[in-house]
Amino acid sequence: MIRFWPVLLLSCAAALLALILCPLIGPTPMDLSKLAEPESLESRLFWLARLPRVILALLAGGALASAGVLFQALMRDALATPDTLGVSSGASLGAVVAICFGWADSARLGGLWVASLLGAGLVLLIVVALSSSGRNVSSFTLLLAGITINSMCVAVMLFLQSVTSLGRSLAITRWLMGGVDSVEYSTLALLCLFVLPAAVVLIWRSKDWNLLAVGQSWASAKGLDTRSSLRLGYAVGSILAGSVTAITGPIGFAGLIVPHTLRMLIGPDHRLLLPASFLIGGAFLAACDTIGRTIFAPAELPVGVITALLGGPFFLWILTSRATMKN
């Protein structure tokens, strides 16, 4: 672990750079000299619109990337991510149910969160049940299961959307567009309350994920109480994916590109991979969102569009390179 501190420092620097630079870039040009004046447009834009948005992107990107790393370790597959496993769809479905039945109305925004977390957890339970029923479930089976769960969730969402009132159906459409927005600081505080403890627990138990990534019997032979570790992992993964989805809506492929690239660069040790993925994943999403809110201004491109455009080809590239490796 000689490279631990340099790599971690670099990752911190990348996240910090995103935090400082991304708020300065946007559709409205900024005169940096006016940034310090408290009542200038520049300082309002910076503090009220850009900074919260970049912080949300950092948190969301970090949470999705580290959830991706976790799922890849637990499922022992580099293609497992919150969205390929259907966990994000489950969270989305939960949120749509909440909007549909009015649990998300006015003062009861908490309903959407709870429903989203439950949706993510439920799907993960299904995936876990599938993957532990047989002795060895191939990644093929796992991805097929994810696709199936995805389409089932989408079907139920479309059904709910078609039977609900026009207003709610519009709310659902808007929510499904997904993306990072200039949220209020209270929203950020709520998200921090979920994401940061989850990320700390995740990183703290890194050595467990190392052992579990090799295999369950390996992990228990090396002294790990695999059942409680797995339970913890699934709970933390659902919290990360569910709480982020509750705010941003579905963002595809955010948990794939950064973990995979980093694993190739710095190796699979989760003690370094997890914190680095959290930081770089956040910086990556913040950068994607900066592009999204700038190129078609004043309209905004949801960040999910950009991550999908980048992540889709990346996913296919992993698939093909893996196929050639097997031959």
Binding site: K207, N210, P268, R271
Partner: peptide
Amino acid sequence: TVALPFGYSVEQVVMMGRAPHMDAWFE
């Protein structure tokens, strides 16, 4: 046999044997 999904180095695989003895985060 052990089928590794990720490229752990030999040293890392051997180090995993230290898991039941390690209380600290670093070795």
